[in-house]
Design a protein around this nucleic acid. Structure first.
Lengths: 188, 188
DNA sequence: AAGGTGATGGGACTTGGTCTCATCAACCGT
DNA sequence: ACGGTTGATGAGACCAAGTCCCATCACCTT
């Protein structure tokens, strides 16, 4: 295991969040993050692809959750229903710590272009994951793309309200999907 | 104007595209691009925010085209119709050179994560631009978000087929919007 | 006790990106 | 024609991100 203390990855995340809050994202060097976590720059880059990723770590698992969530949805469920099921399933992945650090994490991301960029990429990844999963269910390519895109939109909106309220994730996300669905239906 | 030759920006773009094609994106240093263009690293970064941006330069204008395109759409046009009008208007911005370099540009972007990341950010920007423009027309926030998102989807699909065929942009994009619209309508 | 494994430390190295100052061409008014 | 202004460029120092390679140490297995 670790050469000294365990949980190196989590220590790095916590150190990064703290330092970003204290002195800002740009004024914080990777070496400094590692130092506070009792590690070194080398180790940081073994755990995270780059400096940005420390704020998005683990979101790759989320794509898997979405994929299996759609795959395991009831067979007769229409595309958006399957998407909704998958988004609800994400709730089991959201930890309390996630919700606690949520706002401050979002704040850092909001005012740094390179972080919004990474966020955008993650969202695209979610969309692709959902689209592929839908197609594996037999949904037509175009319909899958549209449903996935609307799913991403619903997810973003749900997450935004979830981190700023006390509501239950499943409630929030179901409401969000319903809103997006009716909006899409009453569009053309 | 320029100290020596004019069109420094375009020369940089061309040099970058050539070098990326010859030796790959990662193996090409900014200094090298600048050198081939008869300039220096300093000048490169005066024209482009970073190395990636040389492949996406000018897309900020495109956001403006979308914004004004939506603003100038017929008043009684529903959201997606306004979006369609804006997307069609983009055709006047697409140059022949754009279409010529399109495929090779896309190829470079496709297999470099950092470039797909930048692309994703641009798309988000287009979405925001369209959403804001729609809201300024009085469209409800949610409906604007949905229409904008579907617009981005239609745009991406249209661009993908446009660069690989010989069709007219307005034809391609109108068809794409129509497809997305019916797909969205027959979803829930 | 000996060897293997996996994570870490450490440091050299490349390059993206910033910053500052000097330079030079074109423009403008006199 | 002359001198000052403007704007883009050149040059180089500088910092931090990210890569690479190898030594090191804890832990586990045999």
């Amino acid at each position: 295991m670790g050469r000294w203390e365990p949980d190196a990855r989590e220590r790095l995340v916590r150190a990064a969040l703290d330092l970003f809050g204290e002195q800002g994202y740009d004024n914080t060097a990777v070496a400094q993050i590692a130092e506070r976590a009792g590690l070194t720059k080398s180790t940081f880059f073994r755990h995270f692809r780059d400096k940005r990723e420390v704020l998005f770590g683990g979101q790759d698992q989320l794509a898997e959750v979405l994929t299996t969530g759609i795959a395991c949805a009831p067979e007769q469920a229409e595309p958006l229903a399957a998407v909704e099921a998958a988004l609800v399933a994400v709730g089991t992945w959201f930890t309390d710590e996630h919700r606690a650090h949520g706002p401050q994490r979002q704040a850092v991301i909001e005012d740094h272009l390179e972080l919004r960029e990474r966020s955008a990429l993650k969202m695209v990844g979610f969309g692709v994951a959902m689209k592929d999963a839908l197609e594996r269910r037999g949904v037509a390519e175009l319909a899958a793309a549209v449903a996935a895109e609307l799913g991403v939109l619903a997810f973003e909106r749900a997450y935004g309200t979830w981190v700023t309220t006390t509501g239950d994730w499943s409630d929030v996300v179901r409401r969000s999907v319903a809103e997006v669905r009716t909006a899409a239906a009453t569009l053309g």
